[in-house]
């Protein structure tokens, strides 16, 4: 039975909160229960931002938890803060252009994804978050890429629907990078 507790963390502006929302929306479209809890407040304005996204087949009790199945981490402070709070057997997917010192734990899977570099190559730095999401879903296919695209279609206002193809590309690039990271 699926009960995936995910922390997504990075600098404000890296698309941390929207990544969690997209994931949550896609999970909901696929009939799963979902909760998305942002850190809001002073730290959003220039500091670190994070959100806890829980995807489950059953009712979600607490929307906040202290330990996670998965960490998607986009900056060094997030690695310091959450690296030790991943459950044994869990995974960290991290942005390896920004994070130079990943956790050294041996009891979890740690995957380096150079998402910022890859996004640059796609000529759109903003899709780095979708690259990481694609990488994560390659490792843990809790929802389909089609589900994510469906979610983006609903989340993005119509005037941005011209960006759907590059987001799909980003998800695919992420999946490829994860295959190499294995």
């Amino acid at each position: 039975m699926l009960n995936e507790e995910i922390i997504i963390a990075g600098f404000g502006g890296q698309g941390v909160l929207s990544m969690g929302q997209t994931l949550g929306y896609a999970a909901m479209v696929e009939g799963k229960n979902v909760s998305w809890m942002p850190s809001y407040g002073p730290e959003m304005r220039g500091g670190t931002a994070n959100c806890i996204t829980i995807v489950s087949d059953s009712t979600i009790s607490s929307p906040t938890v202290s330990r996670f199945d998965t960490g998607i981490l986009l900056n060094q402070p997030s690695m310091e803060k959450f690296g030790d709070r991943i459950k044994k057997g869990g995974i960290i997917v991290y942005e390896s252009t920004n994070i130079l010192h990943p956790s050294e734990r041996k009891d979890i899977g740690i995957y380096a994804i150079p998402a910022a570099d890859a996004a640059n190559k796609l000529n759109n730095v903003k899709v780095a978050n979708m690259i990481l999401l694609g990488a994560y879903l390659e490792k843990k296919p809790i929802i389909s890429i089609e589900g994510v695209m469906e979610a983006l279609k609903k989340v993005l206002p119509e005037r941005y629907h011209n960006l759907l193809p590059i987001n799909r590309k980003a998800l695919e690039v992420g999946a490829e990078l994860m295959k190499k990271a294995n």
Binding site: Q21, G24, M28, N33, V34, S35, W36, M37, P38, Y40, I60, P63, T64
Partner: peptide, 10 residues
């Protein structure tokens, strides 16, 4: 409370 107000769910 602030959490129930700010969190997203179905």
């Amino acid at each position: 409370d602030g959490a129930i107000g700010q969190m997203m769910e179905r």
